[in-house]
């Protein structure tokens, strides 16, 4: 188990005093932890609990409540295709199936080379440009199966 680097510890300290309660800093700190590897391991939660002086169970509760924190390793490119109503009407299922087939993964799983994870997510608030997907933090809109593949391949290089 790797100890937290100094910049993370500094960040945690800063965030803890930024908000009215120390607990409010849990989400920002979890984001920070996820930044590096793309997911958060239980050991990291244990360490964070010590660093923040909050019971680990409360951090775990928060982490498991929110969908944006990954509890499992994800690929370098975390492709999240919106599968809610407007996107479904505009062909997001075909898009997801196509991506899964192209990169040879099942929805929610990491591809064998560890590069891509394709997952279905709920509405990302970009319904006017459906179908759309989010890769890591970026939105990609008005997709077709072909254009989506191109984008991912370009980013993967």
């Amino acid at each position: 188990m790797e100890a937290f680097s100094d910049d993370i510890l500094v960040f945690i300290k800063k965030e803890c005093s930024r908000y009215e309660t120390r607990r409010s800093a849990i989400i920002p700190c979890l984001y920070k932890l996820q930044e590096k590897r793309g997911w958060i391991s239980p050991e990291q939660i244990g360490q964070l609990a010590v660093a923040m002086d909050i019971p680990p169970v409360q951090i775990n509760e928060v982490m498991k409540f929110y969908t944006m924190f990954n509890q499992q390793p994800v690929g370098k490119l975390h492709v999240q295709v919106c599968n809610n109503i407007s996107c479904t009407m505009n062909g997001s299922r075909e898009l997801t199936d196509h991506l899964c087939k192209t990169f040879n993964v099942k929805s929610g799983e990491v591809s064998s080379d560890g590069r891509v994870t394709v997952s279905k997510v709920e509405c990302l608030g970009s319904c006017d440009t459906a179908p759309m997907m989010q890769i890591n933090d970026e939105y990609y809109e008005n997709l077709t199966p072909e254009s989506a593949t191109k984008i991912i391949e370009k980013l993967g290089k």
């Binding site: 019971p55 680990p56 169970v57 409360q58 775990n60 509760e61 498991k64 409540f65």
Partner: peptide, 19 residues
């Protein structure tokens, strides 16, 4: 002592302790 918590949400919610 804060050992117990409820994890996940919806009908996947589970009570338990950390790890």
């Amino acid at each position: 002592t804060n050992e117990l918590g409820i994890f996940n949400r919806g009908d996947r919610s589970e009570v338990g302790t950390f790890e």
